[in-house]
Design a protein around this nucleic acid. Structure first.
Length: 262
DNA sequence: CTGGGGACGGGGCCC
DNA sequence: GGGGCCCCGTCCCCA
């Protein structure tokens, strides 16, 4: 089951070929947008019960009592402060990263799921929740109700949701692109992506084919190449049993009408 | 049109 | 929890 392409639906800009994005600031080519203008935080808590103007918060399950969710558990997540992959001189990244709101703009608003009341004070909200007789339930000790009681972390830049903060933070890097190539300025979400990219500048090809003299800068490309040495390719047409080295080739094959029945 | 290469992205897993 | 790596995948280009 593909694991990544689903995401692409949320990133139409990715259709843009990278070479077309190289020339200048990747950031201008990275439409992080459709963000509510009044809130530049990277994340929002889509709240059935709570609304926080902070970067990261778990979206609470309706059954999770808000007192388990501090208004600002870690403060705004400053992703720009995550280990910078750029080697210097990119200190001021021109707002490439999602600028977290200044702390003084953070004001939690507690909305009760069970009625229309809202509170700016956690204690007042907690007090109010008691009136609804909600049992306490911390995110790490989710209630065992049918609906998953796991906290959901919601990315503000896109519709993606994660059940762990780490996964979300990793995902957010794909929006903030903290790893910058000092040669061409292209930005990447992860250091190893940057390293792979740097090989395109250096010409380093550490992944050699055992069957021929070819070498590749990218392991995935080597793997795809290895398919060309195989008599029977990895991807097989369900109708004509023809095999292909790449899924994309099989898809083309299917789209070309080889398999009218399918 | 097809096959292959280049570049890159994302989630999951492991340390 | 964070970083590195792996695997799987896409997109584009070109021969």
């Amino acid at each position: 089951m593909p694991r990544s392409f689903l995401v692409k639906k949320y990133f139409p800009y990715k259709k843009q070929h990278n070479r077309e994005r190289y020339p200048e600031s990747h950031t201008e080519n990275f439409p992080l947008v459709e963000l509510p203008s009044e809130n530049s935080s990277a994340l929002t808590c889509q709240p059935a019960t709570l609304i926080f103007s902070v970067d990261i918060l778990p979206r609470p399950h309706p059954l999770i009592s808000p007192e388990s969710l501090p208004p600002s558990p870690m403060g705004p997540l400053d992703l720009s402060s995550s280990p910078s992959c750029s080697s210097g001189e990119e200190e001021e990244d021109g707002g490439r990263t999602s600028d977290p709101p200044s702390p003084d703009t953070i004001q939690p608003i507690y909305h009760c799921l069970h009625c229309t009341k809202s509170y700016t004070s956690l204690s007042a909200f907690s007090q109010h929740q008691m009136s609804h007789q909600l049992p306490p339930c911390a995110p790490e000790t989710p209630m065992t109700t049918e609906a998953s009681a796991r906290p959901v972390f919601h990315c503000k830049h896109c519709p993606k949701e994660y059940n762990s903060l780490g996964a979300l933070k990793m995902h957010i890097r794909s929006h903030t692109l903290p790893c910058v190539c000092t040669t061409c300025g292209k930005a990447f979400s992860r250091p190893w992506l940057l390293r792979g990219h740097i090989r395109t500048h250096t010409g380093e090809r550490p992944f050699a084919c055992q069957h021929c003299s070819r070498a590749f800068a990218d392991r995935s490309n080597l793997r795809a190449h290895m398919q060309t040495h195989s008599e029977v390719k990895k991807y097989q047409c369900g109708s004509c049993s023809r095999t292909f080295s790449r899924m994309s080739l099989l898809n083309k094959h299917s789209a070309s009408g080889c398999c009218p029945s399918s």
